[in-house]
Design a protein around this nucleic acid. Structure first.
Lengths: 227, 227
DNA sequence: ACTTGTGAAGATGTTCACAGCT
DNA sequence: AGCTGTGAACATCTTCACAAGT
């Protein structure tokens, strides 16, 4: 098996392409060009072609890409064509909103359950997904071979919850709490998604714009020294 | 006023530093080195120094950085020291979970209200924040000078809601729906945060790991051609 | 005529290593 | 002795522009 390096930005864009292609297919559009796909996700067409050419030759010169075919290939690349059992930890607002998102199932994730330590919640359902306690989680993870966990728990609980999940055999963790979760790389993979960062990012530019008037957005930001 | 380019990753890391420093201060730690700060956010100390030196000379050679001083400077850089009135659009799960996040207020955002088109919700409160209708939103935005909006609405509503917000004078939009919101740059700034991308990113690596056994995570991913 | 796939050039971001200061 | 600030080397990602294919 021959592996090669793939830029992380490429994977993130594949995810975007995948959704655009889904929409194109629904609308019955058979062919799409790299320019159209690029416009749809807000990037240059060359990036699209580079990204795709990395994994194979999916297009036809002079024509474009077959929408369904490309979608299927990307789905396969991202693993969207298979069923991934997932467990959500934390039945609060964020956990619930993730559980409520329908695109989840469409994209190959299967929410097996939501784990919560509140005994009052165990046995209930949220958006049709059962809420279970830790004992139930242990059983479920073993039985269903769950490998991915989504952490939507309060910041102070993150580290211990992550450890507990790893002990139960979880291999990949997506952490939504505003805490940088660190776990020995050999134990499990962690992806931290810190929403507050996006707020700060947005504000940083607003803050500047205020000082020089609103301007066209550019990918490279500008700063202003403190003194 | 002298502006200079700042890498977007730098801003995102400043946001992380800011929280770590907050924690350090609470624990009464007076001084921190670039190595310690780097470890805390999981990066090389050189990056920390580069990031900070961009905005001024905050440290003391041979000593380190004064925690409180550095925190204050970063707060100022990111605009966390001022009060930013914000409006959340969409009183669903995601909107509610954002409204529930306490760190929001701590970090200089003031959630003025949650706008929702459901008439049954107008007049109620979510997490202490009033839910208002569009008429109320118009008034509030004008009166309070609200400039930032957080969109947590269903995908099909995003584009029209964004337009409506811009018409009401909103200058910065943080879009959480899995749709790439596009707005003329001169009208407003948009930051799209597509959560599904993170899921796909995580799965991509899991998908590969499965084929070659779990490995240490590395920042550069590897791929496998489709054919 | 049109659009892909891709090497090469360019831009951006990161790491290194050491001079400079306490 | 220790840690910052920073130029220079390096790595990574993006853009360009054109040959190749239909």
């Amino acid at each position: 098996m021959k592996f090669f390096k793939v830029p992380e930005p490429t994977i993130m864009r594949l995810s975007l392409y995948s959704r655009i292609l889904e929409q194109m297919e629904e609308r019955g559009i058979p062919i799409i060009s790299s320019v159209e796909l690029g416009d749809a996700v807000g990037i240059n067409s060359g990036v699209v072609r580079k990204d795709l050419s990395m994994f194979g030759e999916f297009g036809v010169r002079g024509v474009g890409y077959n929408v369904r075919e490309l979608r299927d290939n990307i789905r396969k690349l991202l693993g969207q064509d298979r069923n991934w059992p997932v467990i959500i930890v934390g039945a609060g607002h964020l956990g619930s909103s993730l559980a409520a998102y329908p695109g989840f199932t469409q994209r190959g994730f299967n929410i097996e359950a939501i784990v919560d330590s509140d005994p009052a919640l165990a046995g209930t359902t949220i958006q049709g997904h059962p809420v279970i306690d830790w004992a139930g989680a242990e059983q479920l993870i073993k039985e269903q071979g769950v490998r991915m966990a989504i952490l939507a728990v309060p910041p102070d609980a993150v580290q211990s919850v992550a450890q507990r999940m790893i002990d139960l055999g979880i291999e990949a963790i997506l952490n939504f709490s505003p805490i940088i979760l660190k776990v020995p790389a050999a134990k499990a993979q962690v992806q931290n998604v810190d929403l507050t960062v996006f707020f700060d990012l947005m504000r940083f530019t607003s803050n500047l714009n205020e000082q020089e008037g609103l301007r066209p957005q550019s990918s490279s930001l500008r700063g202003l020294a403190v003194r």
